[in-house]
Amino acid sequence: MPTSQDMTTELDPGLLDALQHQVAVFARRAEQTRLGGTGQLRNSMDRAAYLLLNRLDQEGPMGVKALAAGMGIDSSTVTRQVAPLVDTGLVKRTSHPEDGRAVVLQLSPRGQARLEEVRLSRRQLMAEVTEGWTPDERESFTTLLTRFNSALSARQSGLPVVQEAAAPAESSPES
């Protein structure tokens, strides 16, 4: 089986350099705009908040450990990131229905409304940025970006990187 070093030398170094450069540019642009979408700054939301709210919306109420595991990050990181969301009323802490000692996090109605506002704005941004693209190009880009993110996530988790194409999904751990 070829090692990572063998694979790197087999591939076009110029193409790999261009890829890593474009990923770095994308990361910088995404952070600069916070992918805030269109319109006013109020439509922006930091990455951590967006990913946490999105996960709670998709999967429903859950404890800190489950949320951290699903996102592929440490529980202490989730606790730190959730605190301002609770303080601003976007997330509610409630007692677990079966174990009153355990805390469950859930999206509040205010959090749901805010998340929908940000999603709408980001959806509009994605439509504008890919305006000249065909539906097939949008789908291909989404598939490849999902595959890329899944491979990075697997590598970070110490899992083998699967080389087959992945279908577009939001189920891979985020950071």
Results as ranks from 00 to 15, higher is better:
residue 62 M to V: 08
residue 138 R to I: 07
residue 22 Q to C: 08
residue 56 L to Q: 07
residue 152 L to I: 08
residue 78 V to C: 10
residue 39 G to Y: 03
residue 164 E to S: 14
residue 68 A to C: 10
residue 161 V to I: 14
residue 79 T to N: 07
residue 25 V to P: 01
residue 172 S to Y: 06
residue 127 A to W: 00
residue 48 A to V: 12
residue 73 I to G: 00
residue 16 L to Q: 14
residue 34 R to G: 04
residue 40 Q to T: 13
residue 173 P to R: 09
residue 164 E to T: 15
residue 42 R to G: 02
residue 98 E to R: 15
residue 54 N to M: 10
residue 26 F to T: 10
residue 59 E to Y: 13
residue 54 N to A: 11
residue 113 A to E: 15
residue 44 S to K: 07
residue 116 E to I: 03
residue 54 N to F: 03
residue 23 V to H: 09
residue 51 L to W: 06
residue 18 A to W: 07
residue 31 E to A: 15
residue 21 H to M: 10
residue 143 T to C: 09
residue 121 S to E: 05
residue 20 Q to N: 10
residue 1 M to G: 14
residue 67 L to K: 04
residue 126 M to H: 02
residue 71 M to Y: 00
residue 28 R to D: 13
residue 36 G to T: 04
residue 138 R to G: 06
residue 158 G to F: 12
residue 124 Q to H: 06
residue 108 S to C: 05
residue 87 D to K: 14
residue 26 F to I: 02
residue 149 N to M: 11
residue 43 N to Q: 09
residue 152 L to E: 02
residue 77 T to M: 09
residue 135 P to I: 10
residue 97 P to K: 08
residue 22 Q to S: 14
residue 99 D to Q: 13
residue 48 A to H: 10
residue 40 Q to H: 08
residue 30 A to G: 01
residue 174 E to H: 13
residue 145 L to G: 07
residue 87 D to M: 05
residue 170 E to H: 07
residue 44 S to A: 15
residue 119 R to S: 00
residue 122 R to E: 05
residue 8 T to Y: 02
residue 95 S to I: 04
residue 38 T to I: 14
residue 119 R to I: 08
residue 150 S to W: 07
